[in-house]
């Protein structure tokens, strides 16, 4: 996993609430057996018209938003299906952080496994961020847990263990393998009714 310490980037605003993972990546793209190549299908039904052409009205398709790395959205982002493919589509597209009012529990964990930083900020602060212009940038400082935009500084919370994982770019399984002895000991004391 790519480490995330401090990042500065341009942002795109998709303010809707309850953007579920069916919207982020529709099911017809879940048949891929790899983790890559989902970016072109991100927000598929919003990004493309019925005839397959690009929908020029959708935010991501506006030329001034090309290369944005921060997504600013509403509450309840990533609800519904557990598909991690939704996170892979966001990172494959180039997003490194999503700032929302709240995230579904499963989506949040999936994001932490893939270096996509989910940041929860209250409505009043997101309202300020929603006015961001295409040529302005946001800076995310993970060790200090601060989002900076123009003269505004917003603090955000994150579980210290998830924070450390982002900063170190660690693979979870390597970390867990250090507990091998504890896992084996746990298994030995399990009840058996067979």
């Amino acid at each position: 996993m790519e480490a995330f310490i401090k990042a500065t980037g341009r942002a795109v605003v998709i303010p809707n609430d309850s953007i579920n993972t069916d919207i982020i990546l529709p099911k017809q793209f879940l048949k891929n057996i790899l983790k890559t190549g989902f970016g072109p299908h991100l927000f598929y039904d919003w990004r493309y018209l019925a005839d397959g052409k690009i929908n020029p009205k959708f935010e991501l398709n506006k030329p001034e938003h090309a290369g944005a790395t921060v997504l600013i959205t509403g509450v309840d982002f990533g609800s519904g299906s557990s598909r991690e493919h939704a996170v892979w589509a966001l990172t494959d597209y180039g997003f490194r952080a999503v700032i929302g009012g709240s995230f579904s529990d499963i989506f949040y964990m999936n994001a932490t496994k893939n270096g996509l930083l989910p940041i929860v900020l209250p409505e009043a602060e997101r309202q300020i961020l929603r006015d961001i212009k295409p040529d302005e940038t946001i800076t995310i400082d993970l060790p200090n847990q601060i989002v900076t935009y123009n003269n505004n500084q917003f603090h955000f919370d994150i579980n210290p263990q998830w924070q450390a994982k982002f900063i170190n770019g660690e693979d979870d399984i390597d970390v867990t393998m250090k507990f091998e002895a504890a896992i084996t000991a746990f298994e030995k004391k399990q009840p058996n009714f067979d």
């Binding site: 557990s82 598909r83 996170v87 529990d105 579980n159 263990q161 979870d172 399984i173 867990t176």
Partner: peptide, 23 residues
Amino acid sequence: AFGIGTSEVEHVMATQTIWQVKP
């Protein structure tokens, strides 16, 4: 019983465990 993402599936396959913060 709860749903997990694909990275967690691999983690459970390898370790039979999962990291969670108690809800």
